[in-house]
């Protein structure tokens, strides 16, 4: 993708993906890859809005759905080259907050608010039965300085209360226990 004439180019191009886990299907990386579909890619602010405004808001999705917004070339999978040594910050949200906080999160990512070089890989919003979860993925889970900067930026851009619990999980741990959260 390329920005159109007169459009505001983003630092990186991104692709939006959507996945929905079918009930009764055991999680595995094979059916994960089958269940995840690209929704669209964009390189400019205008292209982002043109896509985003046509998508259902996270709060209107049914349970077990996820949006994944990743830099172009990075698959939203633990095993991807960019992700395999990485991890993610996880914030659990009570129902009703996901749409607004997801928008704030992705605007911060697209606008390069995290200030961690090319460390950010993407962001995910996960709609579940009793809670929703947003997460932001980075390349190098072993770099504490980077991960703390991401956490602090996340807290600021989401305007989270100081007592909000934020968990960091490496993708190798996710692979080991075959679980995202």
């Amino acid at each position: 993708v390329k920005p159109g004439q007169g459009e505001h180019q983003l630092q990186y191009s991104y692709c939006m993906w959507f996945s929905k886990r079918t009930p009764g299907n055991k999680a595995s990386s094979t059916n994960y890859e089958q269940n995840i579909k690209t929704v669209g890619c964009f390189a400019s602010v205008e292209q982002f809005w043109a896509l985003y405004t046509h998508l259902a808001r996270p709060c209107d999705l049914t349970s077990s759905s996820d949006y994944h917004l990743f830099k172009q070339g990075i698959k939203p999978m633990w095993e991807d080259e960019a992700n395999k040594s990485g991890g993610k910050w996880i914030v659990r949200l009570r129902k009703g907050l996901a749409s607004r906080l997801w928008e704030n999160l992705i605007l911060a990512m697209l606008g390069e608010q995290f200030m961690v070089g090319d460390e950010i890989c993407g962001a995910v919003v996960s709609i579940r039965f009793a809670e929703d979860i947003i997460s932001i993925w980075n390349r190098t889970s072993s770099d504490v300085t980077i991960s703390l900067r991401i956490r602090d930026t996340l807290r600021r851009v989401l305007n989270l209360p100081p007592n909000t619990i934020m968990e960091y999980k490496t993708h190798t741990d996710s692979i080991k226990d075959n679980s995202s959260f």
Partner: peptide
Amino acid sequence: GTRIIYERQFLMNLRDSPLAR
């Protein structure tokens, strides 16, 4: 090199630009 940084409000303002629709 220089990074392209956009504040939230700037991005919001572009939401209604004709190119975004």
